[in-house]
Design a protein around this nucleic acid. Structure first.
Lengths: 213, 213
DNA sequence: TAACAATGTTATCGATGTTAACTTATGCCG
DNA sequence: CGGCATAAGTTAACATCGATAACATTGTTA
C-alpha cells in the first residue's frame, strides 16, 4: 500500500536517518561541542548500529562539515538580511549581526572556523559556503567604498580589516577572553566605530608618512 | 659517589623524561597539529611505556596546556621586546610581531587560542600566561592613550579593538581565509593603519552621532 | 642498612573511528 | 505479479586511544 506522501523519498527502516543524524549531531554540538560528537553515541541514541551512519556520511569529518555548511548558510542568511540603505549603518549592522551569530552559536562558530578540524580545501562544498558568507561582507564594504563613504584603500584590505575585527572579537568573546555582549552591550558597536572613525585622536585626512609623531 | 652536576635534578631511568616529552610533543604539534599528539605515540618514540608519562603529566590536557604556556611566554617575550619610544610605531610593531608569531607557529597559536581544548578556567597557570601576554598589548595602548596619541575612549575598548584585529587577522591568515604575510607583505601593516587612522574617508574629529550620513 | 618516595613496568578497561562480510527491505522492470 | 538489483541496515572485528590499578625497581635519606 503506497504511502500518503508519494513523491517523498521513503523512510527505509528508520525515518530519514541522515536528517535525524544531523539534527542530533547539531544538538550535541550546541550543548557539548564538536569533540563530544561520537558516531557510536549518535547511533545508539538513534536506535541504530554505528556502521549504519556510514551509508550516509563517508566520514566523521564530512558529518562535521555538513554541520559547518549549515552554519555558514545560516550566517549568510542573517548577513544578507541587513538593511543596506546607508553605508555606515550597513557596515555597523553587518558587524553586529556577525558577532551576535557567533555569540549565539559558539560551538557551531568554532567548528566553522576551527581550522584544526575541517581545514580549508578538504571539503569543497564547505569552502564554497564559507566564501558565500564572506562575499556578503565584501559586497557591503565594496558598496560603501564606491559611495565614497570609505577611503579608497583596496577593497581587499578594508575587507580584511573588517573581517579580522569581527572574527577576532567573536572568537575572543566566545572563549571568554573579552566580555560578551551580555556583559558589555556596547563593546561590539564601539569597536566597529573605532575601525570606521579611527582610534587615533587627531584624525585629519592623512596617512602615516606625514610623520607628525 | 656524587654526580658531576650536583644541583641538577637527577635523571632517573630515563634522561629527564618531562622535558623530552614536551620537546617531542612540541615537535609533533608544529608538524602535525595538536590532534596528532598521542601519549602512547610519544611514549613509544621516547622508548618508554605510556603510563610513565602520567607520572609527570596528570592528563593529556595538562601536557597540551604546558605547550600553550610555553607559547604564551614566547609571545610575551616577543611583544615585550618591541620598541616603545613612539606610540604609533609601538602600536604598529606590536601588531606586526603578534601576527608574525601566529604565522610562524600556526599550530601552537591554534592550541593557545583554540577554545575547544584548554578552555579558560581549567588551567590557572595557562590563564595567567595568557593574561601576561595580553597585558603587554594593553600597556602599549594605555601608554599611547595617556600620551594623547589615541582617542580618550576607554582603554578596555581600544584594547579590545586592537586585540580583536590582530587575533582575527592571525586566525584568518593561518587558516588560509586571508593571504598570509608571505603572499601579501603589506596586509598586516595596512590593516593596522586602518584601525589607527580610520577606514572612513572623511575623518574629522567627530563621532557617529553627528550624523552626516 | 632499612624505610621511603620517585619513577618505571605490565595488564587491563572502556570508548572511539572504521572496515569487512552478511542480511534484509524496497522499488523497479520485464 | 514475481524476481532482482540495490539501498540500508546488521554483527563481528581491528586498531588506536586515554586512563587506571597493581606491581617492580631505582634512588634518596634517616
Amino acid at each position: 500500500m503506497p504511502n500518503n506522501t508519494p513523491s517523498l523519498k521513503f523512510a527505509y527502516h528508520h525515518g530519514d536517518l541522515p536528517k535525524q543524524t544531523l539534527d542530533l549531531a547539531l544538538k550535541t554540538l550546541r550543548e557539548l561541542g564538536d569533540a563530544a560528537i561520537s558516531l557510536r553515541a549518535l547511533a545508539k541514541q538513534l536506535g541504530v548500529s554505528a556502521p549504519a551512519l556510514y551509508r550516509h556520511f563517508s566520514d566523521r569529518d564530512t558529518l562535521l562539515a555538513e554541520l559547518a555548511i549549515g552554519g555558514f548558510e545560516a550566517l549568510t542568511d542573517r548577513l544578507g538580511a541587513v538593511d543596506q540603505t546607508t553605508p555606515r549603518t550597513a557596515l555597523i549592522e553587518i558587524g553586529l549581526v556577525y558577532v551576535k551569530f557567533a555569540q549565539e552559536e559558539p560551538n557551531l562558530y568554532r567548528l566553522m572556523f576551527g581550522g584544526r578540524v575541517l581545514p580549508l580545501g578538504a571539503h569543497p562544498r564547505l569552502d564554497a559556503a564559507g566564501k558565500r558568507a564572506f562575499t556578503v561582507l565584501e559586497n557591503t564594504v565594496s558598496n560603501a567604498r564606491q559611495l565614497g563613504y570609505l577611503k579608497p584603500s583596496p577593497v581587499s584590505m578594508t575587507t580584511a580589516a573588517a573581517w579580522s575585527l569581527v572574527h577576532g572579537l567573536s572568537q575572543l568573546t566566545i572563549d571568554g577572553h573579552l566580555p560578551s555582549a551580555k556583559a558589555e552591550p556596547t563593546l561590539t558597536e564601539g569597536v566597529l566605530s573605532l575601525l570606521l572613525d579611527g582610534a587615533r585622536s587627531d584624525t585629519r585626512q592623512q596617512s602615516q608618512q606625514d610623520s607628525n609623531l
